Amino acid sequence: MTKIRIAIQKSGRLNKDSLEILKNCGVSIDNGKDQLKASARNFPMEVFYLRNGDIPQYLRDGVVDIAIIGENVLIEKGGDIDIAEKLGFSKCRVSLAVPKEVEYNSVQDFQGKRIATSYPNTVKEYFKGKGVEADLHIINGSVEIAPNIGLADGICDIVSSGSTLFKNNLREVEVMLKSEAVLAVSQKISEERKTILSKLQFRIKSVLQARQSKYVLLNAPNDSLESILKLLPGMRSPTVLPLAEEGWSSVHTVINKDKFWEVIDELKLVGAEGILVCPIEKMVL
């Protein structure tokens, strides 16, 4: 039986989030501690647990068919690899930072300076576009310490909350790019495995759509129903059902979580009552 081969990060936050989305897609994986390869019980899939930086080459060589990987890693090491889906989790940015006490005006301040980074290709491309030349020190690991020990004048690294920079007396001065987890696809994937990928993508899209949405139920006086319906989106249109109490209806719809509070406030102003909000597990469009 043909199985699609997926690579995910061996350890770390991306590992946890990757396994979580596969679980939400109904894929049950049998894997033990320190296991580097595992199979799914209920889906034609093999999982390879790999170092994040090695995944682009495995995709390029066709050793794995797909991977869940940070977009920043692909930009640095796999610019020729296709992205099938942006996954919306493990968001971060690749930024330039300098010691807090250093005055900073613009990216031109990095001219001729020493920059410690694990992302040399990304930095070179960014500086090239800005007309800046700098001396890059490639470090695999914690680059934040480099300015403190006199190895560099600044750093380029991934930033999530910024707490690591703060602890090392650094401040973020330039955001070079924003990144999130993506589903990447090998150019050597077979047609048979593309069919399996389509099934997986369908499930992933259903999960991602559900994560971005809330199911809302509310009671509406019929004389305000028209105004309320104008405020409400829906997958096609809101569902309206009569209540036992004459003159009232129950309205059911789906709201994007980013617009949720704005819509709820407006609904209350036009007479909506008894508003219930429920999470959505899956959304099949």
Rank of each mutant, 00 (worst) to 15 (best):
T2D: 12
K3F: 06
I4W: 01
I4H: 00
A7F: 03
I8T: 01
Q9C: 12
S11I: 13
L14F: 02
L14M: 12
I21M: 02
I21H: 02
C25E: 08
N31V: 13
K33P: 05
D34Y: 14
A38N: 04
R41V: 15
F43P: 08
Y49H: 06
R51H: 10
I55A: 04
P56C: 08
Q57L: 14
V64N: 04
A67Y: 05
I69P: 00
E71K: 14
N72M: 06
L74T: 09
G79E: 15
D80M: 09
I81Y: 04
I81E: 04
I81R: 04
L87T: 11
G88C: 11
G88Y: 12
K91I: 11
S95P: 00
L96E: 03
A97L: 10
V98G: 05
V98Q: 02
E103P: 05
N105C: 02
Q108A: 14
D109P: 07
Q111L: 05
G112Y: 07
I115V: 15
S118P: 03
S118N: 10
Y119V: 07
E125Q: 14
K128A: 15
V132I: 12
V143G: 05
E144H: 15
E144M: 10
I145Q: 04
A146F: 07
A146L: 08
P147S: 07
N148D: 15
G150T: 11
A152I: 02
D153N: 11
C156E: 06
G162H: 04
L165P: 07
N169F: 10
L170K: 02
L170T: 05
R171V: 15
E172M: 13
V173W: 01
E174P: 04
E174W: 07
V175F: 04
L177F: 07
V185G: 02
S186C: 08
K188A: 03
S190I: 05
E191K: 09
E192N: 11
R193G: 06
Q201V: 13
Q201S: 09
Q201F: 00
R203V: 09
K205T: 04
V207T: 06
V207H: 01
A210S: 09
A210L: 06
R211A: 11
K214F: 11
L218H: 00
D223S: 12
S224V: 08
S224R: 15
S224Q: 15
S227W: 00
S227R: 12
S227G: 03
L229A: 08
L229R: 07
L231Y: 04
L232E: 01
V240E: 03
P242V: 10
L243H: 03
L243V: 09
E246G: 07
S249R: 03
T253D: 00
N256W: 01
D258N: 13
I264F: 01
I264Y: 01
D265I: 12
L269R: 15
L269I: 13
V270Q: 01
V270F: 05
G271M: 05
A272V: 12
I275L: 11
V277M: 06
C278Y: 15
P279C: 00
I280E: 00
M283N: 08
M283D: 06
